[in-house]
Simulated scan of single mutants.
Amino acid sequence: MATVTLKGNAIKTSGELPKVGTKAPDFSLTANDLSTKKLSDFAGSKVVLNIFPSVDTGTCAQSVRQFNKEASEMKNTKVLCISHDLPFAHARFCGAEGLENVISLSDFKDGSFGKNYGLNITSGPLEALHSRCVIVLDEKGTVLYTEQVPEIVDEPNYEAALKAL
């Protein structure tokens, strides 16, 4: 269990992020077209998991915009933007913003992604949502980098995440 803050108030998460050097747990997430995507669907590409509470908040939206901008310049890399938001919310946001370089995925069906990655918030007003995290994987699904942002309203360290690629 990890502790992060929301506007300075301590909140708990369900576990710890996968360790650098380990295989990332597989997942089943829902894409905007309601299809199911698994980690194995991205084998052979480097993967950035941009994980956040909700695309309908300013910091979360900014992280999607920033990774969209950065993704257009990265070779053989997929950026997956993951939250509990319904796929319709992801599609609406990315469509309105013209964001085409990220892949939006939802953990709304059973929440197993957040549980398996140890990043579900278990206390406070955002309970059951994902904490803000970035996880970078190599082409074989090995964890290269993790960051659980200590203060949920802060943006992740984009530079460090991209450098890990």
Rank of each mutant, 00 (worst) to 15 (best):
S131P: 00
G111S: 03
C60Y: 07
D107W: 06
S63T: 09
L129H: 12
S28F: 07
L144T: 02
L29I: 12
C133W: 14
V48P: 06
E139H: 10
N68E: 02
K38F: 12
V79N: 03
A61F: 06
T30V: 13
L17K: 11
A24Q: 01
N120V: 15
L39Q: 06
S40C: 07
G95L: 05
S123C: 06
A89V: 13
F113R: 08
T146Y: 14
S45N: 14
K38H: 15
E97W: 07
A96K: 12
F108P: 00
T22H: 09
K78N: 09
Y117E: 02
L119R: 12
V55N: 14
T77P: 00
E97S: 10
V55I: 15
A10E: 15
S28Q: 14
V134M: 12
K78R: 09
D107C: 01
M74I: 08
V47A: 03
A89K: 10
P150L: 10
E97V: 08
S35L: 12
M74Y: 05
K37I: 04
S123L: 06
G118S: 04
S72W: 00
T57F: 04
L29S: 10
K37T: 03
K37P: 00
N101V: 04
K37R: 15
I51R: 08
K109N: 14
F42G: 03
F93Y: 14
L17N: 05
Y145I: 05
L119P: 05
I51L: 07
F88L: 12
K23E: 10
L119C: 13
L126C: 10
G95H: 06
R65L: 02
K12Y: 12
K12E: 15
R92Y: 13
K75I: 07
L34S: 14
G118I: 05
V102G: 01
G95S: 11
L17Y: 09
T36G: 11
Q62A: 14
Y145H: 15
N76G: 05
L99S: 02
Q62T: 15
F67A: 01
I135Y: 04
K78F: 00
H84G: 01
A91P: 00
L39V: 08
V20P: 01
L99R: 03
K78Y: 00
N120E: 15
A96V: 00
T57N: 05
G141H: 04
P53T: 10
S72E: 13
V149N: 13
K140R: 14
I103M: 09
F108Y: 15
F67S: 02
D33Y: 11
E139F: 09
E139M: 07
F113G: 01
L105G: 03
E139S: 10
S131W: 07
T146W: 14
V55E: 11
D33F: 11
N50F: 06
Y145K: 13
F42R: 03
L86N: 06
L17M: 10
T13Y: 11
S104G: 06
T57P: 01
L17D: 03
G118W: 10
N101A: 08
V102I: 06
G21T: 01
V143P: 01
V20T: 05
T77S: 00
D26V: 01
T59W: 08
